[in-house]
């Protein structure tokens, strides 16, 4: 089986995978990083969102070999010890989750949205969240949390 190397949450990792092994399978099954979820497995729900070289992407629709040598950031790589990332803190503060299944992908997408936008209004947040599905919250508090985190992160 081909070997693959990448950096995940700042640590160099490697493994042997099949050509068809998805990035999300490599993260969850080879590295035990089960914070990244598989919701639909059809690139619609966004629960599997991680960052590859600083860009939000759906890890269920990427081959592990496709991101050879890349820097990957998952939900596990956000907090520093007990100190939450500002986006995680905003999700907690604004009660932006209920069951929590979509949350890892929501948080990773949300950070991508803040990174991509100097200015951010509610309409833009809602448009940019089109790739993430939540069936509990009705989105309202997620939108609030992203707006609040934008202020903290962009200061």
């Amino acid at each position: 089986m081909p070997a693959v190397k990448m950096t995940v949450n700042g640590k160099k990792v490697s493994g042997n995978v099949e050509g068809r092994t998805l990035l999300v399978q490599f993260l969850r099954e080879h590295l035990g990083l089960t914070g990244t979820h598989v919701g639909c497995d059809t690139s619609q729900c966004g629960a599997c969102t991680v960052h590859v070289n600083g860009r939000a992407m759906k890890s269920c629709t990427l081959l592990a070999l496709h991101v050879e040598g890349a820097e990957v950031l998952t939900i596990e790589g956000l907090a520093t010890g007990d100190k939450l990332h500002p986006m995680q803190e905003a999700f907690r503060e604004h009660h932006a989750l209920q069951c929590g299944f979509c949350t890892p992908g929501m948080v990773m997408s949300a950070i991508g949205i803040v990174n991509d936008h100097k200015e951010l209004d509610e309409k833009t947040i809602r448009h940019q969240l089109e790739g993430n599905i939540c069936r509990c919250t009705g989105y309202h508090n997620i939108v609030e949390a992203i707006g609040a985190a934008h202020k903290t992160m962009r200061g």
Binding site: R55, K58, G112, I113, D116
Partner: peptide, 9 residues
């Protein structure tokens, strides 16, 4: 096109 994650790829 698609959503931000699709546009990034």
């Amino acid at each position: 096109i698609g959503d931000p994650m699709v546009r990034n790829r």
